[in-house]
Simulated scan of single mutants.
Amino acid sequence: MSRTTGTAQKTESVGTDAGEARITWIPAKGARLVLAVSHGAGGGIEARDLQALAAVLPGRRVTVALVEQPWRVAGKKLAPAPRTLDTGWRGLWPALTAPGLPVVAGGRSAGARVACRTAAELDARAVLALSFPLHPPGKPEKSRADELLGAGVPALVVQGGRDPFGRPEEFPPGGHGLVEVPYADHGFAVPRKAPLTQDQAMDLLSGAVAEWLDGLS
């Protein structure tokens, strides 16, 4: 493992059976939890929701670990099959638990699916599913609800009100909480003419996640 330390964060490279992955740690003073969140199939850890959480949660005593899957570290443009994504996540897990704190597994879109599929076997404290892709756009019959409902641990879904991969009202009841970010799309972008600004949308998201995490510890 190699580490590069900056002013407020450090980057750690981790070898997995799917290739080399990377964790960017944003530490919290007196941390009580680690929130490990990965990106989706079409972007990286620069996603607005992940960055919003990284900016807010360390002040709430939650260390944030931004996880880059091996395919992303390798510079590839397309994510591999779900099985390979799960392999990469499993390989990262020992590094995520190294601080000796409970770890909440999370991610956005494809990363949320990975967290749900592996949470129980990895003994995650809970799952945070950002923009969970309940179904492909325009194909509600191809539901992935079983992944969310089968997570086996407490879960919170944060979903944009106009997400084509599944609007909040499409989610089935279950043992998970659900927070809607009004007017937001799959990337949590809100239209300029929406009644709330982009900053307000991110404040809503990060505030809801912080409150939920407070209830876990």
Rank of each mutant, 00 (worst) to 15 (best):
A21S: 07
E169H: 04
D86K: 14
S38N: 08
V64D: 01
V179N: 01
A210P: 14
P140D: 13
K76L: 10
W71L: 12
L216N: 07
Q159H: 06
D185R: 11
A95E: 01
F132W: 14
P102S: 00
T5E: 12
L96D: 00
K77E: 15
E12N: 09
E169M: 06
A124H: 01
I45T: 11
A28C: 12
V64S: 01
H39T: 15
T84L: 14
K77R: 15
E141M: 11
G215D: 09
D163I: 09
G88M: 08
R32C: 03
T11E: 10
G44H: 13
V181F: 04
P168E: 10
A194V: 13
E211V: 14
D49E: 15
A79T: 07
L92K: 03
L216F: 13
A18W: 00
L35V: 07
G152W: 06
Q198W: 13
A21V: 03
D199C: 00
E121C: 15
Q198C: 10
V104Y: 01
A79N: 13
Q200D: 15
S131P: 09
Q159T: 08
Q198H: 15
L57C: 04
A155N: 09
V157W: 00
E169D: 13
V103N: 00
V153A: 05
A112R: 01
K139P: 07
G107I: 00
Y183R: 03
L50Y: 12
A28G: 11
A81C: 04
K10Y: 14
P137W: 05
L122K: 10
V103P: 00
P102G: 02
A79D: 10
E169V: 09
H176G: 06
D214C: 09
A145C: 07
R117I: 09
D185K: 07
V64L: 06
P27V: 03
Q69E: 13
A98P: 09
P133T: 11
L101Y: 07
D123I: 08
A79S: 15
R61G: 02
L101T: 11
F165S: 00
G138H: 05
G40R: 01
A129S: 14
V14I: 15
Q51R: 10
L148C: 11
F132K: 03
S217C: 05
P173V: 13
G75I: 05
T197Q: 06
G166S: 13
P154G: 01
A36I: 03
G88E: 01
A208E: 15
L122P: 04
A115K: 03
L57Q: 04
G19N: 08
A124D: 02
G106A: 11
E46L: 03
R117C: 02
L57N: 02
P136S: 00
K193Q: 08
L92A: 06
E211M: 04
A41P: 12
A208M: 11
